[in-house]
Amino acid sequence: MSTVLETIDGGTRYLEKRGIEDARRNMQMLVAHQLDCTRMQLYTQFDRPIDESDLAPLRVNLKKRGEGIPLQHLLGKVWFHKLEFKTDARALIPRPETEELAEFILQWDLSVDSQVLDMGCGSGVLGLTLASERPGWQVTLADISPDALALARENAAAQEIPNARFLQSDLFSAVDSSFDGIVANLPYVPDSERATISREVRHDPELALFSGHDGLDLIRRFIPDAFHRLNPGGWLALEIGHDQASQVAGILDACGFTDIEVKTDLSGIARFPFARRSREPAIGS
C-alpha cells in the first residue's frame, strides 16, 4: 500500500514525463482532492497509507491529467478572489488575470447601488465576485452560450448570491436597459493561433477563445454598443490580449469614450483598458 508521499512522488514523475508544467503541485492537488483535504494538510500526513479505494480513482485522474485535461476540470472547482466556483468544459477556465481585473474594480469608489453588466460572463466568476462584494449592486450576467449561463447560474446558487440576473444574448442583442458600469472579458485570441495554443486551453470552448484574424472582431462590435448602453459617466472595464492595447484604446477613443487608461497585469502586460462615457461620439466615428 502506497503512502501519501510515495503516491505524490510517483505521480509527479509520471506527469513530468508527459510534459505537464508544475507537475508536483498538480499531483498534490489531485491527491488532496481525492482525500478531501487541503494541499497544505498533505504535509502532515506524508506517511499515511492510501487505500485502493482512493488509489483507483486517483489513477484515472492522473492519466487524464497526463493527457492534457486541465487540472481545474478534474477538480471541478477553482478559487477566484474569495470564493470557490464550479468550473467545467461549459465555459472558459478562469484565469488569474481576470481576478486582477475584479480587484481593480473593487478598489474604486463607486455608487453602492450601481447597475452593472458582465458581458460574456462565462462561468460567472467576474460578475458574481462583483455581486458578492457589492451586495447593493444589481449585476446582469450575459452570454451567448446557454451552457455557460447554466454554469453561471449554478455558481450563483451555490454561493447564494441574490443580486445577479442572467441573460442569453449575442452581445447586446437581447439587452434592453442601460448600466452604470460594464465589464467584459470577451474572446480575444486570433484565429491564427489555433494551432499553437496549449493542449489544456484546447479544452476551453472555442466560442470563448477566438475572435477573428486579429482577435478583435467581437471587441470592435462590442465597444460602440457599450458606449450607448452606459449611463452618462458610466465606466467600462475590459480584459484584452497581450498586444492589443493600442488598438483597443483607439477604438475606445473613436467611439467617444474618455478617461481612457490601460493598466498592466502582474506580469507587466498592458491588459486592462478602462474608460468612461462622458461625451457623445464625434460625427462620423
Score class of each variant (00 low, 15 high):
Asp147Asn: 04
Phe46Arg: 11
Ile219Gly: 00
Gln107Pro: 00
Leu236Ile: 04
Gly256Trp: 01
Ala142Gln: 04
Leu83Gln: 07
Phe85Trp: 09
Ile161Ser: 02
Val175Asn: 00
Ala195Thr: 00
Arg199Val: 10
Gln45Tyr: 06
Val125Lys: 01
Arg65Met: 01
His73Trp: 13
Asp259Ser: 13
Ser178Ala: 11
Ser246Ile: 10
Val201Met: 12
Glu16His: 03
Trp79Phe: 08
Ala254Phe: 02
Arg279Ser: 07
Ser145Thr: 07
Ala226Ile: 09
Pro146Lys: 03
Gly11Arg: 08
Thr87Asn: 05
Glu154Met: 11
Thr38Ile: 15
Ile269Gly: 09
Ala89Glu: 15
Lys63Asn: 00
Asp118Trp: 02
Gly122Leu: 05
Leu216Asp: 06
Gln34Glu: 15
His228Phe: 15
Thr38Tyr: 09
Gln247Arg: 04
Pro162Ser: 11
Arg90Cys: 01
Pro96Leu: 04
Gly241Asn: 07
Val112Met: 13
Gln159Ala: 15
Thr129Ser: 14
Ala89Ile: 00
Thr129Ala: 04
Leu58Ser: 05
Ser132Glu: 11
Leu151His: 01
Tyr43Ser: 09
Thr264Ala: 11
Arg194Ala: 05
Ser169Gln: 00
Lys86Cys: 01
Arg194Asp: 04
Ser123Asn: 00
Leu207Arg: 07
Gly11Asn: 09
Pro162Gly: 05
Ser123Glu: 00
Arg220Leu: 06
Ala254Asn: 10
Met119Trp: 04
Phe80Asn: 06
Arg95Trp: 11
Thr12Met: 06
Arg220Ala: 09
Leu266Tyr: 04
Phe227Thr: 00
Gln138Cys: 05
Leu141Glu: 02
Gln72Met: 12
Leu35Gln: 09
Leu218Phe: 15
Thr98Met: 04
Leu30Lys: 06
Phe257Arg: 02
Arg276Tyr: 14
Gly212Gln: 14
Arg271Phe: 15
Leu149Pro: 00
Gly68Ser: 06
Ser169Lys: 12
Asn26His: 15
Ala148Asn: 11
Val4Cys: 08
Ile240Gln: 05
Leu58Val: 09
Asp170Glu: 13
Ala91Met: 09
Asp109Val: 02
Ser2Ala: 10
Ile219Tyr: 12
Glu67Ile: 11
Glu206Trp: 04
Ile251Ser: 01
Pro162Arg: 14
Asp47Cys: 03
Arg229Phe: 10
Phe179Ile: 01
Lys63Trp: 07
Ser246Met: 10
Gly241Phe: 08
Gly215Met: 05
Thr7Gly: 07
Met40Cys: 07
Gln72Phe: 00
Asp259Phe: 11
Arg271Cys: 07
Ile105Trp: 14
Pro96Trp: 12
Leu209Glu: 06
Glu6Trp: 14
Arg39Phe: 13
His33Gln: 12
Trp79Ile: 12
His213Trp: 12
Phe46Cys: 12
Trp79Ala: 03
Cys255Thr: 10
Ser173His: 12
